[in-house]
């Protein structure tokens, strides 16, 4: 099992890269034929990735979020999954290059941290916490997507303002679409992350008898959620639109990335499983 899992793990970044190249070729117009037939490649990649995850989960008797490898890999998978839904529902492949490149980077990072150690923490073998972790990761995925859409909005807005009718202009979707997708992703992120955090609090109180109010990662998650929640609420009240909203989503995400990085690597936390 270990050999199979390792082989797939090392191959996955290459598969992600292949998909990114495919979308790059669609983006640049190198592929003029069958640009609408990319979904089977994505679904194939999704299946392979789920297989790798399933092998690790059953072989190591843990949920796929306990190590850096598993966390990043799961995040890449959830981005891929959400992107497939977006592509199928909106039949627009223009954002594929941006979103899938992000998933590819995460998958590459995860491969550098590949290990094969059986899980010893009781917490991480508890299926209730798996629900909490998966929901939280899905929430972060939605927030990441929101930032990617916001970035695309800023680029397209700039193209239109400066009259730069190049490749990026022609391949990126309409401003209103990007704005809608960014806001929708924020809303989904707030809901999923909110449910994930709530579930985590309830479970930790049930199992450990405490909410871990001073745990940096708990505090950070709560702060991020509150930031996005009130940011969104404020934008609705103030009727912030377009570029304002895009800058907010993008800067929010950068703050999230930097602070999370600092907390994850430099501060002690009961959440530190690796």
């Amino acid at each position: 099992m270990k050999t199979i899992s390792y082989t797939i793990s090392y191959l996955l970044p290459l598969f992600y890269l292949a998909v990114v190249i495919l979308y790059y070729r669609i983006f640049t117009g190198t592929i003029r034929t069958h640009p609408n037939k990319t979904t089977p490649f994505l679904v194939g990649l999704l299946i392979i990735h789920i297989l790798e995850l399933a092998i690790r989960t059953f072989s190591l008797s843990t949920m796929p979020l306990s190590s850096i490898h598993d966390s990043f890999s799961f995040l890449a998978l959830s981005i891929l999954f959400v992107y497939i839904i977006i592509e199928l529902s909106l039949n627009n492949r223009a954002s594929g290059l941006f979103i899938l490149s992000f998933a590819f980077i995460l998958e590459v990072i995860s491969t550098f941290y590949l290990t094969w150690e059986k899980e010893t923490s009781e917490l991480l073998t508890n299926p209730y916490f798996a629900i909490h972790a998966s929901m939280s990761v899905m929430g972060y995925t939605a927030l990441s997507l929101s930032a990617i859409y916001a970035l695309m909005y800023i680029i397209q807005n700039r193209n239109l303002k400066k009259k730069k009718m190049g490749l990026l202009y022609s391949q990126l979707p309409a401003l209103s679409y990007l704005e809608k997708m960014s806001i929708r992703s924020v809303v989904i992120g707030i809901i999923l992350l909110g449910l994930g955090i709530m579930h985590g609090h309830i479970q930790s109180n049930r199992v450990f008898g405490t909410y871990f109010p001073m745990d940096p990662k708990v505090l950070l998650s709560d702060a991020i959620w509150l930031f996005y929640f009130f940011g969104y609420l404020l934008s609705r009240i103030m009727k912030w639109r377009g570029r304002w909203m895009a800058n907010l989503a993008l800067s929010g995400f950068f703050v999230l990335l930097i602070v999370s990085g600092l907390v994850m690597f430099f501060m002690e936390s009961f959440h530190r499983f690796f």
């Binding site: 397209q156 239109l160 202009y169 990126l172 979707p173 309409a174 401003l175 209103s176 679409y177 809608k180």
Partner: peptide, 9 residues
């Protein structure tokens, strides 16, 4: 065509 890049619909 330009309008389509600003308004989706």
């Amino acid at each position: 065509e330009l309008a389509r890049k600003i308004f989706n619909k």
